[in-house]
Structures are given as C-alpha cells and as structure tokens.
Amino acid sequence: MPRPLLEVQNLTMKFGSLVANDDVSFVVNEGEIVSLIGPNGAGKTTLFNCISGFYKPFSGKVIFDGKDITGKSTHQITSMGLTRTFQIVKPLKDMTVKENVLTGAFLHANSKREAENLTDQVLRMTHLWDKKDMLAGSLTIADKKRLEVARMLATKPKMIMLDEAMAGLNKTEIKEAMELCVNLNKNGMTLLIVEHVMEAIMPISNRVVVLNAGRKIAEGSPQQIINNEEVIKAYLGERYYAKSRQINGGI
C-alpha cells in the first residue's frame, strides 16, 4: 500500500506579480522514483526551493512524512529527512572532500566517531574514498556532483531531490548516476528528480510529473507522458505540434 511521503498541495509561488508556480499539486509515495520535467522556466527549481525551505510559498502546503513543513527553515527540513542538490554544484571549496561530508554527518551522529564512520561509508558508496583528502574545489565536475550526493547521504535522508544532477556529464557518467539512483532506491530511498536528459530518467522513473509555465499539465507513467499531447506541445510548441500532426496525416 503506497504511503505518500511528500505531498505538495495547491502550491503557488509568486515573485511580485510573476506567478512561478500556479496551484501545483502532486504526491511522491514512499519508495518511488518520480521525475519532474518541463521546459526551461516551467518553475521546477522554484518548486524545489519551496519544498526545501529556501522560499516560503505564497499559498498552499507541503507535507512530508505526515508533517506540515510549509515555510519551515531548510535545516529543519533536512533534519526531518528531506534534502536536495543544486543545479550548480556548490562544494565547500576550502574544505577537503571528507570534511565536506563530515559536516552533514554531524547532523544525526551522536559522536565524532559515529560521524566519521558514516562519512567513510558514504564516501565509499559514492566512489570518493580515494579522493577524501583532496580539496573539494579541485575536483572534476563529475566528482563534485558525487560529492553533492555524498554530502546529502551523510544527513541520512529518507527522500532526496536531485536538480538536473546529470547536466554536464558524459554518457558513462550518466550511466553511473542512473545506477546510483537505482541502488539508493533499492535500499529504500525515495527520489524526486528534475531532469532534461530524458533517456536517463524515463527508464528508471515510476511516475512523471510535467510542469509548464508554472502549472502541472500532466502526470502519469513514463509511457503515458511520452505520448501526451499537452506535453509534446509544451516542449515543441503549438505550431510544430500542429505540423507534426499534419505530416502524420492527422486532422
């Protein structure tokens, strides 16, 4: 029986008169991998910011693990088990890889020893163990992204939100990232992923939610979404859609 872990209810976010998220509602059940897609400017990152406490929504609610987290501060939300990555990687440059992860480990660890153990575990899982004493600022992009994930994992989350984590990765790295997501999910992690690299996420998602111009326009299985008219229109534009229908002998 799927239990909703994250519930977004009628969330609206405005910046002055600009409506970035318009009455968005959806649910992510425990153990699911849900993808959040949509053209640029659809409001996906804004939605993430509202959920994770970086913005306070104009109206609506966010419920996590049965508790209302609307408007709570980020560190509280993290300690409740929900965390996220950023589009642009932000390592703590002047600290080593290990120190970066340690910062997160301290959240739930009761002693320095426990934090260190957790850190080591996470470093191994994300293949960063050999680089643990390097300064975070000197890593490659791929490793910096791994570090983001490692830091997140150190806070022992129940659910993680990835914001275009695959941008800038090559094919091999994307494959590795997909595997990591699947492995985490197998071990009980719930994931909400924003992505543009469709080939990466469609195969691994249970469900897909589509945003366009601030509104949710579609929700369903990956297969349903690919063939959804609204979705195609949103990505390719009205005229192209009409043309493609003509070409396919539509109307």
């Binding site: 501060s73 560190h75 509280q76 993290t78 300690s79 910062t103 301290f106 830091r151 150190a154 806070t155």
Partner: peptide
C-alpha cells in the same frame, strides 16, 4: 562541531542549511 558549522556556513549558507546546520 559548532566551529565546523561556522566554517561551513561561512563558505555557503545554503549548503550549510542543507547539511542540517541552523545557520541562524
């Protein structure tokens, strides 16, 4: 621990928050 929290916050307030650090 608090010292490390200060260090992290100094480098990035957002990240520190995500690490569960009460930056306030």
């Amino acid at each position: 621990k608090t010292g490390k929290a200060i260090q992290a916050t100094a480098q990035s307030r957002d990240i520190a928050e995500l690490m569960g650090v009460n930056t306030e």
